[in-house]
């Protein structure tokens, strides 16, 4: 079976980035960390190439971590294996008028 890979860049991260095409709900991805250790996680949604899945259950308001840093907060509860993107991740900053 073809490897469905996702990468967790930093030990502090709670999301990983998918490097496989055509992933649908129910399919299993292999999440690797920077040392090459892996965990298999079933997806709770279809997720495109280059997009993110949650590595643990997240509550609304939890910090979303990638690269060992905060990239935003969860704007809703996000279960492990679900799709994380602009629909459930709120940027904390970045607008010029704030």
């Amino acid at each position: 079976m073809e490897l469905k890979l996702a990468l967790k860049i930093d030990d502090l991260d709670n999301v990983a980035t998918i490097f496989a095409e055509g992933l649908e709900e129910g399919m299993v991805v292999e999440v690797r960390d920077k040392r090459g250790h892996s965990e298999r996680i079933p997806l709770k949604a279809a997720i495109p190439y280059g997009h993110k899945l949650a590595l643990c259950d997240l509550k609304e308001g939890d910090l979303i971590m990638k690269y060992g840093e905060c990239i935003g907060t969860a704007s809703a509860a996000i279960p492990k294996g679900d799709y994380v993107h602009v629909h459930n991740l709120k940027a904390r900053r970045g607008r010029g008028d704030l």
């Binding site: 280059g50 997009h51 990638k66 690269y67 840093e69 935003g72 993107h85 970045g94």
Partner: peptide, 13 residues
């Protein structure tokens, strides 16, 4: 955003 980046922080990081 279409490429998977969800915030400007993520892009900069």
């Amino acid at each position: 955003i279409a490429g998977g980046l969800s915030s400007i922080e993520e892009k900069s990081l």
